[in-house]
């Protein structure tokens, strides 16, 4: 059975609410999925240069990035030669397997959060401006609370207008407490307060919001390191997770983001947000390939339950489903 069929089967068999969410994001594509795969494949009777070029473009369009794509196509060509594959259908399955392979062969791919059995777990959120940190915190707080955990949020973005109020709304929605100080105060001081409060109240999880910052701003990255040091000092072993939020619409710069934030805060996982749009966030494959950071969650909307645990197979399915389903329109350069 082809890899795509396998994926599809796996996909359609699951019918829990969570999977439905994921499906919604792909509704239009799902129905005609098989048909389109056949289409693509039917157009090519032979596995030739043109075929590879089209595959290459499918991957480019998903923001997978030049190097990863080239590497993948290279390996694929070798495989095709080695196995003497003539039929495009077979290549299709090989490439999907390779993609999942790339993902799973690199270090720990377990998306589960490192939640302490006993005592306080601290989760720090980092990322550039506007990617979805605060929203994801709201969603995660809701999820953890549903699991019966006592959750507290720390309003560590003291810079952006309305950021504290935004987190407070999410605190209300999820029904968890928010520790804050006035706008403009030192984020490290807010963290200190929040850590004391979390310990005093016997919280299970403290989730820390931080202001968005571009990774090339040296001073802001230093500020973030300081926030992390306060956490390390107050709770031994903390932060237990440092989650970097990446916007799925981001292109190659996401790799720079991952590198720099990893250097500064030792990122332990990625949240790929806004995957409910048409962007695919393919750069996470390159990030995984180079930096070995696992993706832990994907964001699929702006509501409280729009957060889902990352599944590489589903992800690869999504990567191709949309691309194969939608014939890209022609763009032409202006005269």
């Amino acid at each position: 059975m082809s890899f795509f069929k396998k994926l599809k089967e796996k996909f359609t068999q699951q019918s829990d609410a969570v999977t439905d969410k994921f499906k919604q994001g792909l509704t239009k594509t799902r129905d005609s999925f098989t048909g389109r795969v056949n289409d693509l494949v039917a157009r090519y009777r032979k596995v030739d240069e043109d075929f590879f070029e089209e595959l290459e473009e499918i991957l480019f369009q998903a923001d997978v990035g030049y190097e990863t794509v080239e590497q993948l196509i290279e390996e694929l060509k070798m495989e095709v030669k080695r196995k003497n594959i003539q039929d495009p259908v077979q290549v299709q399955s090989v490439i999907s397997e390779k993609l999942v392979d790339i993902y799973e062969s690199k270090g720990d791919s377990n998306p589960a959060l490192n939640i302490q059995e006993e005592g306080l777990t601290v989760i720090l959120f980092v990322g550039v401006n506007g990617v979805g940190k605060t929203t994801t915190i709201g969603k995660l707080a809701h999820q953890l609370k549903e699991e019966g955990k006592k959750v507290i949020l720390a309003a560590g973005d003291t810079f952006r207008a309305g950021a504290i109020e935004q987190l407070e709304v999410w605190g209300d929605r999820a029904g968890v407490e928010v520790i804050k100080q006035a706008a403009g105060s030192d984020p490290a001081a807010v963290m200190f307060d929040a850590l004391q409060a979390a310990k005093a109240r016997g919280a299970d999880v403290l989730i820390c919001d931080t202001a968005g910052r571009l990774q090339n701003k040296v001073n802001l990255m230093k500020e973030l390191e300081k926030v992390k040091r306060v956490i390390e000092r107050e709770v031994p072993g903390a932060p237990h997770e440092v989650l970097l939020v990446l916007d799925a619409t981001t292109g190659q710069n996401a790799l720079n983001q991952a590198k720099t934030f990893k250097e500064a805060t030792n990122v332990s996982g990625i949240v790929l947000s806004k995957l409910d749009g048409t962007a695919k966030g393919g750069i996470v494959l390159a990030i995984r390939n180079e930096l070995e950071i696992p993706v832990k969650f994907v964001g699929l909307g702006e509501k409280m339950d729009d957060l889902q645990v990352f599944d590489p197979e589903k992800y690869v399915y999504g990567l191709f489903a949309n691309l194969i389903d939608k014939e890209p329109e022609e763009y032409s350069a202006p005269e």
């Binding site: 923001d63 619409t249 292109g251 750069i283």
Partner: peptide
């Protein structure tokens, strides 16, 4: 956002 990737066209 200037960091937008391929999806910018869509």
């Amino acid at each position: 956002d200037a960091m937008t990737g391929q999806d910018a066209v869509n």
